[in-house]
Nucleic acid binder design. Structure first.
Lengths: 340, 340
DNA sequence: CTGAAAGCGCTAACAC
DNA sequence: GTGTTAGCGCTTTCAG
């Protein structure tokens, strides 16, 4: 028996719109309409074309479509690193929101290096992405200008303030730092310390933390700044160092919950009671904060909401709406649990 | 004084290659060469064209380039979710490796739903991505066929076995599960339990775990399977449940280190000594394993290496090399620390 | 509701 | 080394 050719569609990369048109006995334009605006095609034609598409295994070339329509349906996002829960949850929500709106996400990682961010922006502009999501608000002026001239919707996330390039969704890291200090001081602590990262937003929080502390007469707040990426296993040694140099410290504000968990473990290692000997305040309200023992007090940031709102703002603009808010403050909330 | 027009480049989206050509007094093709193969252009011309590019603020339209050259320089990756450290570190390494090779990463999240994965693949094929990275090896036959017909390089990650679509880089989850059981049994444990996720790879590990246990006469291994996403705060309650129903259990294998950390915290809550009352074995060797107290024994997976190797395999293929390995086993290693 | 013509901005041959 | 000629596969007018 002669083996028959399997009834499989031709390789997708070789079937073009015109092939479908011929097979369905319509013009190419009609096929385009079936794909993009099916409601404007007569049901009979629609059915015929769709069956041809099916039969041939046609996959529209979105690249060609983008070139012709000047809309790529791609949005790019740049984060310092994706392997930080803090950003990955934002990106997850953003990806989901965009996907629901028919957009895909091109991902870029700056690795906390400004030069890389600029280079990525160039590539993305070259790809004619329809929108851009950035992390932070500290882009160099040249970059800001370039983006404004490019005229595409841009959302800056995770920090408010500065002069927005276009739109912003985030919160005040400075205020969050203030709130952290006030929480610890309200609990009676006067000797505070800070563990964070050598990175803009963390340093904003430190500034706020110190400012609020100073207002209560606590003027000397030691800080340990870890060079990114700040991993959980950096936290323990840093705490040990703080305690060695400043044994009077009774409360530490950690710039994310993972670091705080590291501090919790370190305390356990030394047998220091938390919060008796050392109060620990985290940042972010990651799942680990709720699971830790003792339960971790923390500054809650609704990370997914940042991604969602950023996606919605972008989608709104891309669909022609122009009156939406340009700045969204999603705020933060100090959650008191057992560790402070 | 009449305010002069600022010396800023025209909006990037309006300058075309032909504009640069005119400004530099060369043909359009020469500009294209300056952009893509500068070594084939005479230094003088090069300089002239580059200065014109600079002056006009020209940003090449990669979309048009892709259409003409049939290479998008985009690779797509699909993971269940990016907000799981286990995948995000792989994606981070992949993104970096690809970026160094001049490729960008389009990100898709399947949310552990097979249907979403298939839909994403369609979109990505439509965008004519040059390569594809998938998680796992359990794609439905229709999808596998479609991908093979599409003829683009595909790397499946995080699991070995099955019939590869094209290339694979990962390890045997079944064997990793076996190794976990053997480690615990070697430490004298006979009443084992498992906490994992309702998800293919986790279940492979469970199967291996149970198989090895059975070989040592341990035939009844209770398992708690969490519906994804399995967060750290699910772990404690599950452990509590296991202990309530099976107080004889003395060792638990958690399917990632975050869950294991949750279990550690839960033990602390109850005052159960680890590993005295309960031995805890993690999976992944995330940073938290090294920071935990007690230090967490775990099955180490080199997650970044998966992303790196996947990227390299793709880049090699995209640059025409065809003899590289199609399957890379990156293995795993049981790391004994203090928790077992 | 459907079709014909005219590109989108670039690269791939092939000449010169 | 550089230029000329044809498209890449689709969407957009604008007619009918």
């Amino acid at each position: 028996m002669i083996p028959r050719v399997p009834p499989s569609p031709i390789s997708s990369s070789s079937v073009r719109m015109s092939d479908v048109a011929r097979a369905a006995g319509v013009s190419l334009v009609t096929v385009s309409r079936v794909v993009n605006e099916p409601e404007r095609v007569k049901p009979d034609t629609l059915r015929a074309v769709r069956s041809a598409i099916e039969q041939l295994g046609y996959v529209p070339n979105l690249m060609a479509g983008s070139l012709a329509s000047k809309r790529s349906r791609i949005v790019a996002a740049i984060v310092p690193t994706i392997s930080n829960l803090v950003f990955s949850e934002t990106i997850e929500a953003l990806t989901r929101t965009l996907a629901d709106g028919g957009y895909q996400l091109l991902l870029g990682q700056s690795g906390y290096r400004a030069g890389d961010e600029a280079a990525l922006v160039d590539t993305f502009l070259g790809r004619r992405v329809d929108g851009l999501v950035l992390t932070g608000e500290g882009q160099p002026p040249a970059l800001r200008d370039k983006l404004r001239r490019a005229g595409l919707p841009v959302v800056q996330t995770w920090e408010l303030g500065g002069e927005a390039i276009d739109m912003q969704v985030g919160f005040s890291n400075h205020d969050a730092g203030r709130a952290a200090a006030e929480h610890l001081i309200a609990r009676g602590h006067r000797a505070l310390a800070f563990i964070g990262a050598q990175e803009a937003r963390s340093q904003q929080r430190l500034a706020g933390f110190r400012a609020a502390a100073a207002e209560h007469g606590v003027s000397d707040v030691p800080a340990e700044l870890i060079r990114p990426p700040a991993l959980i296993d950096d936290a323990g040694p840093r705490l040990a160092q703080i305690v060695a140099q400043r044994p009077e410290v009774t409360a530490v504000f950690c710039n994310n919950d993972l670091l705080a968990a590291g501090v919790l473990f370190e305390c356990r290692q030394h047998g220091w009671d938390v919060p008796g000997r050392m109060a620990v305040l985290g940042f972010g309200d990651l799942a680990i904060a709720r699971a830790a023992s003792p339960r971790l007090s923390t500054v809650q940031i609704r990370r997914a909401e940042i991604g969602e709102r950023a996606g919605q703002m972008l989608l709104a603009r891309l669909s022609g709406e122009n009156q939406g808010a340009r700045t969204v403050d999603i705020g933060f909330e100090v959650i008191a649990r057992a560790s402070t």
